[in-house]
């Protein structure tokens, strides 16, 4: 058998931890830890989405909270309508079925990301960061000022949405659903990175002129990556809403966008398990230090500073050495 690379081993350990710890927690009846693990999984999924644009394509989107929040509001709005027995626009029936909600969330985020990407990708660098932020803030203020769905107070889901054949109200089954979605998204990321599209995307990050000299339009490659990235993050948003049974504009806020970027940088940019490692550290910090001091983010900031200064490949880079795709 060929020797496994250190990154593969590190990934294996992370995956095992993510599966085994909640099972142990379930066996010992500590459901709180399952919820904590579910939070890790969902944040990792959201960051994994962003990692497609940021890690592979070098597109530093500071507006991915828009898609995270949109996904959340899709879940919240569909469920609220279904609960009240009201139809949606054009008399379409609402639903509490997760697969349908996911589909709507993913499609909606794709549709919204298309014009946002098409406009934002005409810029680059700091302008790209600012314009994606501007779009996200537009959606944020729209949500704040729309009283029908709670406005600033947010929107509560009365019960968790349903998944065929699974009792989602229990923490463990819901965790397993989220984990399966994360695994599927990780497969998608891995396939994308290994494909010709992935190579073209990394080439576009490196040098767009060279890419057009071989007859590939960099704009289109980046736009497709941006849209796929938004769709994955939107799916995470829908799951997040169901986890908390609550959606509020804070999911759309720029702090959320920043959080997603922090997760990626902590874990390792462009790495398959980077967002997962990042989300683990983030949520554990929040839990462990959050109990001691309100200012736990100060200490997270120190860790982030350490990573940026001394471990440019993120925590996974620290364990596994330089990224395969530098």
């Amino acid at each position: 058998m060929a020797a496994l690379s250190r990154e593969t081993i590190a990934n294996g350990v992370l995956a095992l931890l993510l599966l085994v710890v909640p099972l142990l927690a379930a066996a010992s009846g500590e459901t709180f830890y399952i919820t904590l693990a579910t939070r890790i999984v969902i944040l990792a999924l959201a960051a994994l989405g962003l990692n497609i644009a940021l890690g592979l394509g070098g597109l530093v989107s500071f507006g991915h909270a828009a898609f995270f929040g949109l996904g959340g509001y899709v879940a919240g709005i569909l469920a609220t309508h279904a609960f009240n027995g009201e139809a949606l626009l054009f008399g379409l029936p609402a639903t509490t079925s997760m697969p349908v909600i996911w589909l709507v969330a993913v499609l909606l985020c794709g549709l919204v990301a298309l014009p946002i990407g098409a406009i934002s990708l005409r810029t680059s660098g700091v302008y790209f960061i600012m314009i994606t932020l501007a779009f996200a803030q537009m959606i944020y203020y729209f949500a704040v000022s729309w009283p029908d769905y709670g406005g600033e107070d947010g929107l509560s889901l009365y019960v968790r949405n349903t998944f065929p054949g699974v009792n989602t109200a229990q923490p463990l089954p819901y965790f397993l659903i989220c984990l399966a979605v994360l695994a599927a998204a990780a497969c998608l990321f891995w396939l994308l990175r290994g494909s010709r599209f992935g190579a073209a995307l990394e080439a576009a990050r490196q040098n767009t002129t060279r890419l057009s000299a071989v007859g590939i339009a960099p704009f289109r490659i980046k736009l497709v990556a941006f849209v796929i990235s938004a769709m994955v993050t939107g799916l995470a948003g829908a799951l997040f809403a169901d986890l908390n049974r609550f959606v509020s504009p804070s999911m759309l806020s720029w702090q959320m966008s920043g959080e997603l970027i922090v997760l990626i940088i902590l874990g390792g940019k462009g790495r398959l398990f980077g967002p997962i490692a990042g989300a683990m550290v983030y949520v554990l910090f929040e839990y462990a230090l959050g109990g001691i001091t309100e200012r736990w983010q100060f200490f997270l900031g120190l860790v982030l500073l350490g990573v940026v200064l001394f471990a440019r490949g993120g925590l996974l880079g620290l364990v596994a050495g330089r990224a395969r795709h530098g």
Binding site: R205, R210, A213, V214
Partner: peptide, 23 residues
């Protein structure tokens, strides 16, 4: 646009080689 011109059948070997170093 450059990519359209390249698509019509011009292959460039640029000065200074300029491969994609990260691939």
């Amino acid at each position: 646009q450059p990519h359209r011109i390249a698509q019509q059948g011009i292959g460039l070997v640029p000065e200074g080689r300029r491969c994609f170093p990260n691939l």
